[in-house]
Amino acid sequence: MIEVKKLSKIYGKGEIAVKALDHISFQVKTGEFVAIMGPSGSGKSTLMNILGCLDRPTEGIYILDQTDVSKMSEQELAKIRNLKVGFIFQTYNLLARLTALRNVEQPMIYKGIARKKRDQLAKQALAAVGLDDRIQHKPAELSGGQRQRVAIARALVNQPQIILADEPTGNLDSKSGEEILKILAGLNQQGITIVMVTHDQKVASQAHRIVYFQDGRIVREELTANGGDCGETG
C-alpha cells in the first residue's frame, strides 16, 4: 500500500543543509493503523507531508498504491491528494465562513462532482460521523470534537484509501479525543489505512503498530495489543 525506500528530505543547501528525513524505509499495509511518535523536529511532520503528497522527497522512492509518486508533477499530486488521501489536522482547518455541509463539500468541488450530488454525499459523510443534526452549523457554533468530526467527514467524502491524521486529538479534551479515536478505529475497520502522528502514548496504543522517530530516522517499531488483527490482507 505505502512503501518508502531510502527516503530523504533535505532543507537548504551546503553547510546550512538540514536533513529532516534521513534514508527512511518502511511500509504500511492496506488496512493498517500506524501511529508515529517522536519528539518535535524528529521528521514526523515532514514524513506526513510527503505521504500526503504535499511535498516531494529530495531522494528516495515513495510508492503509493503501486504508483511511484516521488516524481509526479504538481498537478498529478493534487489529484492524488484529492482522490486517494484524506487529511485530518490538529487545528481542524475548517473554513470559518462555511457551514459544516459546505466544508465537507469542498474536496468534491475539485473532484468535479455536481452540486446536488455533493449535497447528498456530504450529508451521508456527516451522518457517518454522527453530525446529521449539525449540517447547517458553522464551525464557530460547534464544539472542538464536533469540528474534528466535520474534518473527518471532509477527509472521508472522496473515499480515500488512506487517512493522514496529524495530532487529531491534540486540541481536544480526553472525552472528545476518545470519540474521535473511536471514529478513526471504526473507519480503519472498514478498510481505510490510517497513519496518525501523536505525542500521546495512550492515543498511539489505539493503533496496530507504533513507529518511533528521532533525528530524521526510525529508531524503533513496536506492535501494540491491537497489532494481532492488523490487516495483512493487502
Binding site: 487529511f87 473554513l95 475539485y110
Partner: peptide, 16 residues
C-alpha cells in the same frame, strides 16, 4: 493563506 493551503491539501490544483 491558510485557506489556500487547505484547499491545496484537499486537492485544488494551481489553476483551481
Amino acid at each position: 493563506t491558510k485557506e489556500i493551503g487547505l484547499r491545496k491539501a484537499l486537492g485544488a490544483t494551481r489553476s483551481d
